[in-house]
Every structure is written in C-alpha cells, then in structure tokens.
Design a protein around this nucleic acid. Structure first.
Lengths: 215, 215
DNA sequence: TGCTTTTCGAGGCTCGCTGTCTCGTAAAGA
DNA sequence: TCTTTACGAGACAGCGAGCCTCGAAAAGCA
C-alpha cells in the first residue's frame, strides 16, 4: 500500500492547456461505480484493484495512474456524494428537533448498503494509516459533525435548547453519531428513522435541565 | 478466508482420553501472544497467518490446525481476557455513578493499544462475515452491554436513577458505548477517564427528568 | 498532413501471503 | 514396541499487488 501523489495527472498546475490525450471521464466514472458496486456485492474486505479494473472494464494501470490504493478510489466516491445532495446536509425547517431528525435520517439512510460498508472499512484501515485517518476525518466525519453542531447552535440561539445540562454540544454530537456507529458496527439494533427520532428527543434533556420538546 | 470447524482437535467429544501426542500449550500461548504483539506493532490489517507463525516460532500448519483464520486467533485472545479480570466487569461500590465510571474506565483502558486495534479490525471484517459478527457480538459486545445494563438497573432499583426520561435503558447503554466507538474510530477526541465521568454524569438526565447526581 | 504528448486497454513480470500437502520427528497411550 | 496425534519445516499452486511494456487512440501544434 504505497502512497504517492499523482506525478503525472490532469492539469499542469499553471494555466497552460493540458497536452496529449485528455483523461477519460467515462473510465473515471466506470472505476468509481465499479468500486461501489463491488463493495455492495462482496464487501469492503474483498475489494481489490484488479477486481475494480475488471468490473469497470478498464486496464489495471489506468486505476493505478489516478488512485494509488483502493482507499483512494472509495474516498473519491464518498467525497462526490455530498455535491449531489448538498441541501440534505443543511436542513432548516425552523424546528430544531425536525432539523436533527432530517440530518440524522439522511445520514442513517446512507449507512445502509455500499456506502456504509465502504465507510466502515475505511475507518478500520485508518486505524493503521494516519494519512487516511486525516482525510477520512476531514472529508467524511467533520462535515457531518459540523452540520449537526450548527443545527444545535441555532436551536440554542432560538431558545429551543439550553446549555446548562451535563453534556456539552460536542458530547451531544458524539452521542448522536456515536449511537449510529455503535449500532452500525455491532448490528444489535437498527439505524433507522425511529432511532433518529429517539436521539432528537433525548438531546434536549441531555443539553439542558428544563428543556423539553414542544408539541 | 475459508471457515471450517476443527475436524481433528483436542478432545474426542466422548469421555475417552485423547490419543497420540497432546496439544502443546506452549505453542498455543506463543501463537496468541504473537498475534496480539503483531497487532500492536503493525496493526490488524497487516496481520497474517504466516507472520503469526514466524513470530511465534511455530509451523504454519500448527496455526491452521487450530484456527482457520486470523480472526479466530484474535477472537480467542479476546475471550481469554475477561477470565483474567472478571471483577472489573462487575463493579459494585454502592454508588451507581461510580460503578459506571469504573466499568467504562476499565473498558476504555482496554481500547487503547493492541486490544483496541484487534476489536476494531474484527468489527470491520464482521461487516462482511455474518458468523464472525455473531461470535463477536456474543463474546465481546454483549457481555459489556449486559454489565452496564445491570449497573443501571441496580441504580433504578435503589432510586438513584429514574426511568421517566426520553431514553430507555437500551439507548442509554448505546450512548455510553456509542461515544466510545465513535471516538475510537474517528479519533477526534480521547477515550479516557474524563469521558467516563462525563458519560456517567449525563446518564441521569438522559434517563429521568428530575434525577441529578448527588454529592 | 505528420509529429508530439498523454491516456487508453491489455497483459507480462516478480513478490508475498494463502491454504493444502508432505516430510521427519516428538510425545502420549496400548 | 506399535499406534496415534501434534510438532516444526518447507514445497507447491493460486491469486492479488504493484511495476513494467506494448500498440492504439485522442488531443494540440506545425
């Protein structure tokens, strides 16, 4: 598992136009789609560069040229997702509890299927790969943390939530995503809509002594 | 990664004494110790059967004879741990918050180092291996869940905790271990003693509206 | 139209690990 | 002593990693 940055690669950094045959967007999409499909079908552990190349009907070197490892392929798959549904990361219904439910509900939906398998596998590999851990943190974990924190802060500003309870905002965020990860990994209970509701309802008492959900 | 049950293996099931040369306890210990040491040194992903056998100075077939996969080796390492420190799973100080802190503190301590790496890696593999998931659930996850749940129930019975809050006992247990797993994986915050205190303090308001920590 | 540059699919190559098998040897009971 | 089973050691094919080369394709430039 060597790590080298694209020495060749797309643009020449300066403004000059790229020379030679341009990179095939078709091949790029085929590789990303094949990786996700194989992850769904066989699981992250069974994913191989050769398998991806064969499934995508692409030369193996074409994969290695742009992605040093299978982790890089999946990370690109993951970082492309939010751009498709940016709005789902930032619900703003006016009700803090509904916002929480929507953000968590959308996130929980993603964890089922191939995306969930990919993220869990990447997390495991990141335990022994510091640079992967940093990128995963920056591109997958942190954005969702920030989104939930923003919702909570808005709720505090509007007086829907207090901040005089035993838990800080950070611990509240840890609570929400922590339960998700725990259930995702151990599989002892589902990660679904009802869970999003339960967590949203529990965040009030966790943050503030007197706050309770209205309605 | 084939899975086959020990066809040969120790006792002949009936009461008759085993025939032939008995299994070497020395070799068994060497394998288990080597696996944990390599997990600590290089991480779960780098762990190989060949590596374990070489480190343990044992024939490769001796490993395969008793453990079909590296997961089986690590699972045996993990299931041997509680027997060494049974008491740490069942603190009973009379104070529910102190009991929680002790159980979580001991668990959190285990997650650092080789044990943590092993459990995280096994969890990841279990996502694509149902039988491994079952064994991990039964032998690692469930016992700690049960221990915390028992502490909480004792606290309820003694009147230290209520059960009229937004969270059920199960969700409270998910909260405690969920935060642990989340931080363990993403590494955005430490899994240490202070966290055990914060969680213990937060469980009261989570479970019951009026309950607050005494003292 | 060539010529240059870069990517493309395809496949050869070495290396290391897997999982099975076969040695010769060691340690137990009969 | 004979049988049975475990032991360390190593041979073997299979497969994926990662690097290499090949001929063809697709762009800009003269």
């Amino acid at each position: 598992m060597k790590k080298i940055e694209n020495g060749s690669g797309a643009e020449p950094a300066d403004g000059s136009p790229p020379r030679g045959r341009p990179r095939s967007e078709t091949a790029r999409r085929s590789v990303l789609d094949a990786a996700l499909e194989l992850c769904r079908r066989d699981g992250y552990q069974e994913l191989t560069i050769k398998g991806i190349a064969d499934e995508a009907q692409v030369g193996r070197q074409t994969v290695y040229r742009w992605w040093p490892t299978k982790q890089d392929v999946l990370l690109e798959v993951l970082t492309e997702l939010p751009h498709r549904s940016q709005a789902e990361l930032f619900p703003d219904t006016g009700d803090v509890y509904r916002d929480i439910e929507e953000l968590l509900g959308h996130t929980f939906r993603l964890t089922r299927g191939a995306i969930g398998r990919a993220v869990v596998g990447l997390m495991a590999d990141a335990q022994a790969d510091a640079s992967l851990a940093l990128r995963l943190q920056a591109e997958v974990i942190a954005p969702r943390r920030a989104a939930l924190r923003e919702i909570l802060e808005r709720g505090v500003a509007r007086g829907e939530l207090r901040q005089d309870g035993p838990a800080s905002l950070d611990l509240a965020v840890d609570f929400a995503f922590g339960v998700m990860w725990y259930r995702l990994l151990s599989g002892h209970a589902p990660v679904d809509g009802p869970l999003a509701q339960e967590i949203a309802a529990a965040l009030g008492p966790l943050l503030g002594s007197g706050a309770a959900r209205r309605g």
